[in-house]
């Protein structure tokens, strides 16, 4: 059984495994970094630590997010913070980034639980999203929820 934080991006339901999530906030004041890769939306100051905010939509190959009332940042744990969890949960597959990263999403939903068996492979007809960044899909309340692959998503070498 794994728990997922659900959220919406361009109306698409998505999920991020909760073990990877450090916190969720609504900080909107970000500093734009010129010449940065397009998916970097900016930098925010999270209690004295600098967090690189990803425009998740751009990272997944869509048009940029528009910031609204419900826009949230999902701040992820760093690899360092994950090292203990990997051992404790016996989840050597967990991976994120060495830097603090937040994902900008359109809105936040509930936390849901799935078994590994419920997770299906990515259907062939998905074209609007870069499938390298997906870990799988789960049918959920008549929708298809996309589960993100954080290790790939946060790998700065994957363009």
């Amino acid at each position: 059984m794994s728990q997922y934080v659900t959220f919406r991006l361009k109306n698409q339901l998505m999920g991020m495994e909760i073990l990877l999530v450090r916190e969720i906030n609504q900080l909107k004041e970000s500093t734009f970094v010129h010449l940065a890769p397009q998916y970097v939306a900016g930098l925010i100051n999270l209690r004295g630590q600098i967090v690189t905010i990803f425009d998740l939509a751009v990272r997944l190959g869509m048009t940029p997010c528009t910031i609204g009332e419900e826009t949230h940042n999902i701040i992820l744990k760093t690899n360092d913070e994950l090292s203990r969890i990997r051992v404790k949960e016996e989840r050597a597959d967990l991976a994120s980034s060495d830097d603090m990263v937040g994902l900008r999403v359109d809105s936040i939903g509930d936390v849901v639980e799935f078994t590994d068996e419920q997770v299906e492979s990515i259907p062939a007809n998905i074209h609007h999203i870069d499938e390298r960044f997906l870990a799988g899909v789960v049918p959920f309340k008549e929708e298809l929820m996309f589960l993100l692959n954080a290790g790939m998503l946060l790998n700065s070498e994957v363009q």
Binding site: T31, V33, L35, A36, V40, I50, T52, D99, V101
Partner: peptide, 22 residues
């Protein structure tokens, strides 16, 4: 952060007295 290292013209980031990142 590793995402910004390839930009040549910045040496780092800092937080100003008013909390803003530059």
């Amino acid at each position: 952060s590793s995402y910004l290292k390839s930009i040549k013209c910045f040496a780092g980031t800092t937080i100003l007295g008013d909390g803003r990142v530059i």
